[in-house]
């Protein structure tokens, strides 16, 4: 099972980016092999609109079944749900800290978006 973290950098010690839709990268972590790959999300960052939706497409293509991020807008949430991807919100400072929380079962699956969307 793979998990996508919204990340500002290229390794697990990078800060967790609080915005799903405008995150520069996704760190896709494979829980079975403990390996990860970094997926570039710059196209969404530069999107005129629908960045959250485009990010959801990026995550879906990466094969991840869950997303861990700071905040997720309504369009992104709908798109992720549509792709069958679960969403977990956290204010953990780094990807590694968020991963620990996920592994210890301390993150609850989000039932809806937690921020209003629209270009923020």
């Amino acid at each position: 099972m793979k998990i996508a973290f919204s990340s500002s950098g290229d390794d697990v010690h990078s800060p967790l980016d609080p915005r799903f839709g405008r995150a520069p990268k996704f760190l896709v972590y494979d829980l079975e092999t403990d390996r990860y790959e970094v997926v570039d999300n710059r196209r969404s960052l530069d999107a005129a609109q629908g960045a959250g939706i485009q990010s959801a497409e990026t995550v879906a293509r990466s094969g991840a079944g869950s997303v861990v991020t700071g905040h997720c807008g309504p369009n992104a949430f709908r798109a992720l749900s549509g792709a069958g991807i679960k969403v977990y919100h956290t204010d953990a400072p780094t990807v590694a800290a968020a991963l620990d929380l996920y592994r210890s079962g301390k993150l609850l699956e989000a039932r809806s978006e937690d921020v209003r969307g629209h270009w923020a």
Partner: peptide, 23 residues
């Protein structure tokens, strides 16, 4: 449809697409 749309207003994840009316 999703590949065509420049506004990300319609998107498909391998099944019937989702529509985002406000986009």
């Amino acid at each position: 449809c999703g590949r065509f749309c420049e506004y990300r207003a319609i998107v498909s994840f391998g099944e019937a697409p989702l529509v985002f009316p406000e986009l």
